[in-house]
Write a protein that binds this DNA or RNA. Structure first.
Length: 463
DNA sequence: ATGTCC
């Protein structure tokens, strides 16, 4: 039996002793644990002789890059001036969130930024932050829950369908959704996303595929939910083939579960290792898109985004089937992701971390709280927000403050007053913990127009 | 957000 693969083994083969090679070795040792050392070293020898043939390779690409064009690791300096930015609803946003944006605006890769009216402090970029960069992606400006998104299905049933069916609808939610860190859908679902070649080609994704399969169609915890309610369309929508009126609808909010969390963790680690920054902005470390890791993050991030969509689609499919009806229209959007978009005519990487894409004519959903309406919106394409809007009402009380100041009884009262049935839910998510969504919508009238209103009725959350 | 340490 061969001993554990070490850096010395590669040096003996003739690999140079560099930072890039060390990081690459760490990755290989991690994903080829089951392989014999001799086998790995034989492959490594090939890479050493013909590195160009291994560029972009899942396992050996980083090592090949380390030989041909290693990532330059050097302390990055912040700019003296911030790049342009706009804050929407400045008076409603805490100072820490603003400071975090100001820091991000001084990154040498920054192009333009914005803060949405629901912004609050987070890791790296604040939640509700939008940042355009030049050919670089910041894992912590996408967020830990990569691909977190909204999905709204309008059913072929009137809103009045809910009358007197509280018990039946509650059971459908309990039966066909899965919440919390461990709960999964009872019956397995197949989905094309699991056959995606990226799950095979990237060693990290390969190692996470089994878990992704298990968690498909689950919702997770925190502020995630699946809820029945009525949606009121304010005008005829030929684009959705829907007439003005009220319909039964299902609204869901969730992300990419363990898959996205692991991907975020992995590439944040690599970014911070290879992109040293002043301490207060270290979490804003980026990956150059012309590097192996940058390319790989982009592939992984987009696969994870597709997976998050697949989770919503699975939930909606199950519930439509349980209701015995069909979906007339679906509106959906990611709100934790990065996109390649034109900013003042130049292609940039636009990170939206808790922000709804709002280019002209793009539809999206901005939820309120469990007891207040969510809004179907159409983007106005405002360049000042980098074509974005808020992703919700935003927190008014911290999670700690909720535990201290709120009670389960007070929450139940407010839910009863609003006529909401809640399954699960914690004090963190109490209606009083959130800002007034109507006010937040007012603060972004230049960003989106409202085309419909969703009123929650039966809400399921974790716990 | 996440079996809450790469």
């Amino acid at each position: 039996m061969g001993s554990k693969l070490s850096g010395k083994d590669l040096i003996k083969l003739g690999f140079p002793q560099t930072n890039a090679i060390n990081i690459a070795l760490g990755q290989i040792a991690r994903y080829r644990k089951r392989d014999k050392k001799e086998r790995i070293l034989m492959e490594a020898k090939e890479v050493l002789v013909h590195p160009e043939q291994f560029m972009g390779h899942g396992t050996w690409g980083k090592l090949a890059e380390g030989l041909i064009k290693p990532v330059e690791v050097r302390m990055q300096q912040l700019l003296a001036q911030r790049v342009p930015f706009t804050i929407f609803g400045e008076n409603e946003i805490d100072e820490q969130a603003k400071r975090q944006l100001y820091d991000a605006l001084k990154l040498p890769i920054a192009v333009q930024g914005a803060l949405m009216p629901d912004a609050h402090a987070g890791y790296g970029l604040p939640i509700g932050g939008v940042l355009a960069t030049n050919n670089a992606v910041i894992p912590y400006a996408v967020g830990v829950d990569i691909g977190c998104r909204m999905s709204l299905s309008v059913f072929d049933l009137p809103a009045s369908f809910m009358k007197g069916k509280d018990f039946q609808l509650r059971n459908i939610l309990k039966e066909h959704t899965a919440f919390g860190p461990y709960e999964v859908q009872k019956t397995k679902a197949e989905h094309a996303v699991l056959d995606d070649p990226r799950f095979r080609d990237l060693p990290l994704l390969k190692s996470l595929r089994a878990k992704a399969y298990k968690q498909l169609g689950s919702s997770g915890s925190g502020n995630h939910f699946v809820e029945f309610g009525s949606v009121q369309l304010l005008a005829d929508r030929p684009d959705l083939q829907l007439g003005k009126g009220e319909y039964l609808a299902l609204l869901s909010h969730s992300g990419s579960r363990g898959l996205g969390a692991q991907v975020a963790k992995h590439y944040s680690y690599l970014a911070q290792k290879q992109c040293p920054l002043p301490k207060q902005v270290q979490q804003l470390a980026w990956l150059d898109l012309d590097t192996h890791d940058g390319q790989e993050y982009w592939l992984a991030m987009n696969l994870v985004a597709d997976y998050a969509k697949a989770c919503h689609d699975d939930i909606h499919r199950r519930i439509a089937k349980a209701l015995g009806t069909r979906v007339l229209a679906n509106i959906e959007n990611h709100h934790n992701l990065a996109w390649k978009e034109l900013v003042s005519g130049e292609e940039c990487i636009v990170h939206r971390k808790g922000a709804t894409p709002a280019s002209a004519g793009t539809l999206g959903i901005i939820p309120g709280s469990m007891a207040s309406p969510g809004f179907l919106v159409e983007g106005k394409g405002n360049p000042l927000s980098l074509q974005s809007a808020s992703h919700g009402a935003g927190r008014l009380m911290s999670r700690g403050a909720c535990k201290e100041k709120l009670s389960r009884a007070a929450m139940s009262n407010s839910l009863q007053e609003a006529g909401i049935t809640l399954i699960g839910g914690t004090l963190d998510e109490a209606p009083m913990a959130y800002k007034d969504i109507h006010k937040v919508m007012q603060l972004q009238e230049e960003l989106v127009s409202v085309i419909g209103v969703f009123s929650p009725k039966i809400v399921r959350m974790d716990k």
